[in-house]
């Protein structure tokens, strides 16, 4: 090939590659805007709050004196509410997702339901709070309890769980389904032995991401009337004498981490701002830990399932 032609090809490539460089730089800048903002917020909160974090901070009830105030009722409340949320959202969401993917007939009704589930994920959480106030707190008479809060947040993350379930089911190759049916399995046997186990990693990931969102929710919890100052714990779920399990805690008044934070930030004293930063730091760590758990679970459960 003659030299001018080679030179021409090289200059075309060089011009094309300039755009690669330009886009890479733009991309990195965009990425950094997002990452650095969050990192700056987190670091600022950590620097402010870290001196306040000690064992007492976790074991003390809130107090009027900032230096002896702790987050005991808040983290216990958050944990209990999350338990209720997970226990209700997982079976309902997984069952709804399985129904839509495996059983629902393909018609306009199903289409309408599908569109609405996607829409539900976008409903502002305060609306769920109002719904829950009318339905759970007053209509069902659950009061301003752990149970009412858990159910509210379960409603909130239900669309996330359903969508995650459906995506996990769609990722299962048709060959698995056909293999099961070809051996004479019923629909339920196929769901029970194949669809559910194989989609479990995806479902769990969706659940935990939903929970990580729910743990930081403030608006719906305030709407249903969580207390901001609470100096006792719900009765423990486990008891030394039979029947060993108690469900009284479900109906106990409670507070949660974000409400505790909100309460402290609205105080005039500077010392409480430090408390709020410390509580925020813990809340972020809780969320990160949940996301970490999701990644670990997905990795563990998918080890045996690779198509």
């Amino acid at each position: 090939m003659d030299a001018p032609r080679v030179r021409e090809i090289r200059s075309v490539i060089a011009r094309g590659k300039r755009w690669d460089v330009v886009f890479a730089i733009v991309g990195i800048v965009c990425l950094m805007i997002g990452l650095l903002t969050v990192a700056a917020l987190f670091v600022d909160m950590a620097v402010k709050g870290l001196p306040r974090i000690s064992l007492e901070f976790f074991t003390n009830f809130p107090s009027r004196r900032a230096e002896s105030a702790g987050i005991l009722s808040a983290w216990v409340g958050s944990t209990l509410v999350m338990v209720v949320t997970a226990v209700t959202a997982v079976p309902i969401g997984a069952a709804a997702g399985v129904y839509l993917e495996e059983y629902a007939p393909r018609n306009w009704m199903t289409d309408v339901i599908e569109i609405n589930i996607t829409n539900l994920a976008g409903v502002p959480s305060i609306v769920y709070g109002l719904l829950a106030l009318g339905l759970f707190v007053y209509q069902f008479g659950l009061g301003q309890s752990v149970l009412a809060a858990g159910l509210t947040l379960a409603l909130l993350i239900l669309p996330v769980v359903i969508v995650a379930t459906r995506e996990a089911i769609r990722a299962i190759p048709a060959a698995m389904r056909e293999g099961s049916y070809a051996l004479g399995a019923t629909q339920w046997q196929t769901v029970r032995y194949h669809i559910l186990p194989y989609s479990m990693p995806g479902i769990l990931t969706g659940v935990i991401i939903g929970l990580a969102r729910a743990i930081g929710e403030t608006a719906p919890i305030i709407t249903i009337g969580a207390l901001t100052f609470i100096a006792f714990l719900p009765s423990p779920p486990f008891q030394p004498e039979p029947p060993f399990l108690s469900f009284e805690w479900l109906f106990a008044p409670f507070t949660v981490m974000p409400i505790q934070m909100f309460n402290w930030t609205s105080r005039p004293e500077a010392a409480f701002q430090v408390n709020a930063a410390a509580a925020g730091f813990i809340l972020v760590l809780m969320t990160l830990a949940m996301n970490g758990l999701a990644i670990w679970l997905r990795y563990r459960l998918r080890r045996n399932i690779n198509w």
């Binding site: 293999g179 004479g184 194989y198």
Partner: peptide, 18 residues
């Protein structure tokens, strides 16, 4: 289901369950 209980099938790509 009755039909599939009497008639087995082997697929194009091996599809053992995980």
């Amino acid at each position: 289901i009755e039909v599939r209980m009497r008639i087995g099938m082997v697929f194009q790509k091996p599809n053992p369950f995980p």
